[in-house]
Amino acid sequence: MRLALLALLFLMTTPLPGHAVNPDEVLADPALETRAREISKGLRCLVCQNQSIDDSDASLAKDLRVLVRERLTAGDSNEQVIAYVVSRYGDFVLLKPPVNKATLALWLGPFLLIICGLIAIVLFFRRNAKTATTAAAPAPLSDEEEKQLAKLLAESDR
């Protein structure tokens, strides 16, 4: 009984893969279907906008999935299919933004910030090290100072 309950709990809490792909859309050729799934995961659903067409139940997403499969069946390469959809909807349809003039700052920004941070750290420690060494090894006393010191010591002895 306990085991059965545990099994039920397991079934209820295990997330099922929530694919929106309907059985009638699936291609007979498994290799083509894999490619179709791969492409679909990178294309934005234009109705819900934060889901890929592979995940979305929107009707436009379904029609786009079918279109991807039709183009693949017709012999298009993955790049050709993606280029076609981009030519209709723009770069926005790609969930991963491509590297181009408009997105260069987006792609390089984090690396630039890291480099700036590293430079700042290096400068900070260098300056600290400099002040530390000057503090550890003060200049030796001049003759004048030695005399003064001896005088002070002699005075205190008295």
Partner: peptide, 10 residues
Amino acid sequence: SKAAISFGVT
């Protein structure tokens, strides 16, 4: 959506 997609309709 054959024509709609080729027109870029959302």
